[in-house]
Design a binder for these strands. Structure first.
Length: 199
DNA sequence: CGGATGCCTG
DNA sequence: CAGGCATCCG
């Protein structure tokens, strides 16, 4: 809940100001008047922001990322680093889900549909701990749905013995990649990364 | 060749 | 999470 408030405040704030700085000052005086807030390297605040964004998008394009990190000076290095972050986020996510799917199988679960990820489930706890450590952000319900589907897909695949195929996860990745949802505009706000760091 | 992906290591 | 490397494509 506190997370929502912080973002809400960012939305009405200095978003426009940053744009003006970029279009005028930066473009005409690139060497002498570099905006102070324009980061040349990703900060811990950016990392925290990226993790929260993961709750909405698992497969963000570099283009999308550029529109949500307006305070970052994108370069090949920065872009690849951000993309890399999400790649790492996905790895952790899928590893966790697979683990719980196999566990459910061992516990004798029969119907995949009964596998639902709720806010009080162990899987959610593990994921929330990783992407929202301080638990200061209200995870969107949509994420729970995506996680549930992912869990069911892994469960069904393993139960069907598809994990024998070296590339058995590919079909699942394909499905999940289509479930990305829009990211709240609040994440674009200037200073958002730092605000999150404090909350 | 240089950049994007993906797997997997430490 | 960052490094490395193998691989694929323009």
């Amino acid at each position: 809940m506190s997370g929502y408030h912080a973002l809400g405040m960012c939305v009405s704030g200095a978003g426009v100001v940053l744009r003006d700085m970029m279009s005028s000052g930066f473009a005409t005086c690139r060497l002498s008047l570099t905006p102070r807030q324009m980061q040349e390297a990703l900060t811990p605040g950016h990392l925290k922001k990226a993790k929260l964004m993961f709750f909405f998008t698992r497969y963000p394009s570099s283009t999308l990322l550029k529109t949500y990190f307006l305070d970052v000076q994108f370069s090949r290095c920065i872009t690849s680093q951000l993309i890399k972050w999400f790649s790492n986020f996905r790895e952790f996510y899928y590893i966790q889900v697979e683990k719980f799917a196999r566990q459910a199988l061992l516990e004798g679960v029969v119907d995949a549909c009964t596998l639902q990820v709720s806010r009080d489930s162990e899987l959610f706890r593990a994921l929330n701990m990783h992407y929202n450590k301080g638990n200061d952000f209200e995870v969107p319900g949509r994420f729970l749905e995506v996680a549930s589907l992912t869990l069911q897909e892994f469960f069904s695949a393993v139960r069907a013995g598809k994990d024998a195929d070296p590339s058995w996860k590919k079909p699942i990745y394909k499905i999940i990649s289509k479930l990305d949802s829009d990211i709240p505009e609040g994440f674009k706000a200037a200073g958002c990364s730092q605000e999150l760091l404090h909350s």
